[in-house]
Simulated assay, not measured.
Amino acid sequence: MSVTLPSGNAPTGGHHPVQEGDVFNMRYQALRKLGCGAFATVWLCHDTRRKKHVAVKVPRSGESFAEAAQDEVALLRCVSSMKKKDRAGENIVCLLDDFKMMGENGFHMCLVFEALGPSLRSLMGNYAAQGLPLPFVKKSLQQVLAGLHFLHKRCRIIHTDIKPENILLYVGDKTLQKFLSDIVDSSQRTDLGLKGPGGDLGNRLEHSDLMSIEVKIADLGSACWTYKPFSKEIQTQPYRALEVLLGLDYGTPADIWSTGCLAFEMATGECLFDPRPGKYFSRDDDHVARIIELLGRIPPQIALSWKKSTKFFSRPGALLRISRLQPRSLCGVLVERHNWTRAGVAPFVSFLLPTLEYAPEKRATAAQCLQHAWLSSP
């Protein structure tokens, strides 16, 4: 598991202090910290009953964190139940156990997951200049989309935070256990999930057979039911769908927008949208402007029907605080900035554009994305 550091002030409630060797729930012995965020820490542990490695997520103490953890458990139990019915959903991380723990800072609702490798972000750090090899990009996207199709259609769940940090790598049980054991025994590595370029773990992955690596969608901590959104503010900014930026009610298409952004970043090494605030405009203003520059004018019937339209637009298609736009095209960006051939660009752009449709109801579904010829091409 990986833990994402959210923006803004850290919430109240304390982290449970953990030392290597501590035992959770009379069963899970802490080996190494995998990640630490504002909401939880995640520990690589040895399950003394099953004799295997697991990842234990320990949220901060406090009622709000306990409720959020209980929501996550409910969502993950639904995933587990549907997996058993359908024999599908293998591309979603498995919840193995959950337990309650009282510590010096109060009550903690803990979750136990299968132990996986580092995040896709860790792997991408070694290919930052040129993006990941396209055969691996296509294979990984097939697995992410299969996972999303399962979540959307079978479980009625919106993930709400698809990004490289929440896509975890694994390489098969026996290989993985040996791999993790090697890392645990090494004094050089104390963090599996957050690696910088050139790190020991990343180099070992880089020199392995990339095509033997599988991926799984992890971290349903922000997920919600399709029929019961928990929050209006979802998604990490660069992967945030236009309807979320503009305050519209969202659904499963928001995950597809994020997946389109993920696909571009995997293939090029750069974020599709990387908005920055300016002196007279916000990060959200810049984000909307960058979207318009790349994908074209937002139709008035869409822009002005949305709840935050007056926050961004002075009149149909005209931004309030940013007057000068520099239109560009996906094809142009790939050819001029990333040195793709025109023959290679067209199929990829044909795959991307349906994931970035402005109107959510017109956006491609996960199932439709999976049928696109680019994903199965050599």
Rank of each mutant, 00 (worst) to 15 (best):
Thr12Asp: 10
Asp200His: 07
Thr48Gly: 01
Leu320Cys: 14
Asp286Ile: 09
Asp185Leu: 12
Arg283Thr: 13
Gly196Met: 11
His372Val: 00
Pro299Ser: 05
Phe273Gly: 00
Lys84Ser: 11
Cys331Trp: 00
Leu168His: 00
Phe351Glu: 00
His149Glu: 12
Pro118Gly: 15
Ala30Glu: 05
Tyr280Ala: 13
Arg156Asn: 13
Thr160Glu: 00
Trp225Gly: 07
His207Val: 09
Val215Gln: 05
Arg297Phe: 08
Leu201Val: 15
Lys139Arg: 15
Thr226Asn: 02
Cys110Val: 11
Asp286Ser: 14
Leu248Pro: 03
Arg154Asn: 10
Met26Cys: 12
Lys178Glu: 07
Arg189Gly: 05
Trp43Tyr: 12
Ala218Leu: 11
Ile302Tyr: 04
Leu76Asp: 02
Arg328Phe: 03
Pro253Trp: 01
Gln368Asn: 03
Gly117Ile: 14
Ser305Tyr: 01
Leu141Trp: 08
Leu262Tyr: 01
Asp97Thr: 06
Leu330Gly: 00
Phe312Asp: 02
Glu20Phe: 11
Trp306Ile: 08
Leu120Ala: 10
Val333Gln: 08
Glu63Arg: 14
Ala88Cys: 13
Ala364His: 00
Val144His: 03
Pro253Met: 04
Arg315Pro: 04
Gly125Pro: 13
Ile292Val: 15
Val42Tyr: 02
Ser208Asn: 07
Ala69Gly: 07
Val112Cys: 09
Ala254Ile: 06
Gly8Pro: 15
Ala367Asn: 02
Ser7Ile: 10
Ser208Lys: 06
Glu214Met: 14
Phe230Gln: 12
Cys271Phe: 13
Gly199Asp: 14
Tyr170Arg: 06
Ala373Thr: 05
Arg337Tyr: 05
Ile217Lys: 03
Gly125Thr: 13
Gly21Tyr: 09
Pro6Gly: 02
Ser181Trp: 06
Cys369Thr: 02
Ile213His: 07
Thr190Arg: 14
Gly13Phe: 08
Thr226Ser: 10
Val184Tyr: 02
Cys110Asp: 03
Pro327His: 14
Trp306Val: 05
Val288Tyr: 02
Val349Gln: 00
Pro253His: 02
Thr226Tyr: 01
Lys311Gly: 03
Glu293Pro: 12
Asn105Met: 14
Phe313Lys: 12
Ala30Asp: 04
Lys216His: 07
Leu294Trp: 02
Ala289Val: 09
Val42Glu: 01
Ala88Tyr: 05
Glu336Pro: 06
Phe65Val: 03
Gln19His: 09
Leu31Ala: 08
Gln130Leu: 14
Leu319Val: 13
Val73His: 06
Glu104Tyr: 01
Phe99Gln: 10
Ile322Thr: 12
Leu148Val: 04
Gly147Leu: 06
Ala359Phe: 01
Ala55Val: 05
Trp340Ser: 07
Leu34Asp: 02
Leu294Glu: 00
Glu214Asn: 15
Met102Gln: 15
Pro6Ala: 04
Gln235Ile: 09
Leu141Glu: 03
Ala263Ser: 12
Val42Lys: 02
Leu75Ile: 15
Tyr170Met: 09
Thr175Pro: 03
Ser258Met: 00
Gly198Trp: 11
Ser122Asp: 01
Ser323Arg: 15
Gly106Ser: 14
Pro327Asp: 13
Ile183Glu: 01
Gly125Met: 13
Gly89Tyr: 08
Ala146Leu: 12
Leu242His: 01
Val288Gln: 03
Pro229Phe: 05
Glu336Ala: 11
Ala373Glu: 07
Lys57Tyr: 07
Ala343Leu: 11
Gln19Ala: 11
Gln188Ala: 11
Glu165Asp: 12
Phe230Ile: 13
Ser350Asp: 07
